[in-house]
């Protein structure tokens, strides 16, 4: 029983990491809080579903296409909407929120709800770890979660574009004066965030169906993790995901499954009281702009 909880709690935590990484990535680099994140997540999944089921492409190809197109959609969103209102937080928040809402409600209206909208698992087997039986898809989730977090670290520390990312994350004006095209980098960051959302969706959603409502839950979870961990901090995302992830799994196992939603809420309220900027956050409003 305990072994089971530990293993499934681990998987659940990695799911949260996956879900929150993209949002956090975009924010950490360009300072854009993408409230359309949940919609982008669902968009990725639906694209994949369409390429696989309606167009009939091989699954691998469908996945790649879906991820690429979602990334392009993110870039377009930056180019045609965010670029014009860059730096005005009010407009950024409202515009991304509006886009997300419009997309999700449009999907709902178009009727993407139902059992048939589900993605196939990658390999349909399960394996035993000790006494715990776990299906292959969950193993994939863990592997891909680790790979994506690792890739993010590698990318931002060892590639040219990645270093530019960190450059503008630290000080956009200085980066600009060093010849970094900050608009291009910000666009890439939104696009990267979108790609991360699509990958997360395609790995995670085979566990259930593609439900448009999940767009909202994903956004809630991503925001909760980022608030608890501290916006813009990858370490914080991981730590917060494990706290909330294990918290939820233990709640389901030992308390009542209804109370799962209480876990992130309590985590948020607790962190707001104890350390409002999050576990690893240093987002004090005043000091950073002096």
């Amino acid at each position: 029983m305990l072994a089971n909880t530990l293993v499934y709690g681990f998987v659940n935590s990695v799911i949260l990491v996956l879900v929150a990484l993209g949002f956090n990535l975009t924010f950490g680099i360009s300072g854009v809080a993408n409230f359309a994140y949940g919609a982008v997540y669902i968009l990725g999944a639906l694209l994949c579903w369409t390429f696989f089921n309606s167009v009939g492409l091989p699954y691998v190809l469908a996945i790649m296409l879906a991820v690429i197109i979602t990334a392009i959609a993110g870039a377009l969103m930056y180019r045609f909407v965010l670029l014009r209102i860059r730096g005005m937080v009010l407009s950024e928040v409202i515009a991304t929120f509006g886009i997300g809402l419009a997309l999700l409600e449009l999907f709902k209206y178009l009727g993407f709800i139902g059992f048939e909208y589900s993605l196939p698992v990658f390999i349909d087997t399960s394996i035993d770890i000790g006494q715990v039986v776990i299906d292959m898809q969950r193993i994939f989730i863990v592997i891909i979660g680790i790979v994506m977090a690792g890739f993010l670290w590698f990318f931002t520390h060892h590639t040219r574009t990645g270093l530019r990312f960190r450059g503008i994350a630290q000080d956009e004006r200085t980066a600009l004066s060093l010849g970094i095209n900050t608009d291009r980098v910000a666009m890439l960051s939104v696009s990267f965030g979108a790609a991360y959302a699509a990958i997360a969706a395609i790995v995670i959603l085979p566990l259930g169906t593609i439900n448009v409502e999940q767009g909202y839950s994903v956004l809630i979870n991503a925001l909760a993790v980022c608030i608890v961990g501290g916006l813009g901090s990858t370490g914080g995302v991981v730590l917060a995901s494990f706290l909330i992830g294990y918290g939820q799994t233990f709640t389901v196992t030992y308390l009542e499954s209804h109370w799962v939603m209480l876990v992130p809420l309590i985590a948020i309220l607790a962190i707001l009281v104890v350390k409002p900027s999050g576990l690893y956050g240093e987002q004090k409003e005043l000091e950073e702009r002096i």
Binding site: F27, A33, V89, I227, L231, I268, P276, Q283, K284, E285
Partner: peptide, 10 residues
């Protein structure tokens, strides 16, 4: 006390 965006998120 935090950056404005936290208010929107919460």
């Amino acid at each position: 006390r935090l950056r404005g965006i936290y208010f929107s998120m919460v």
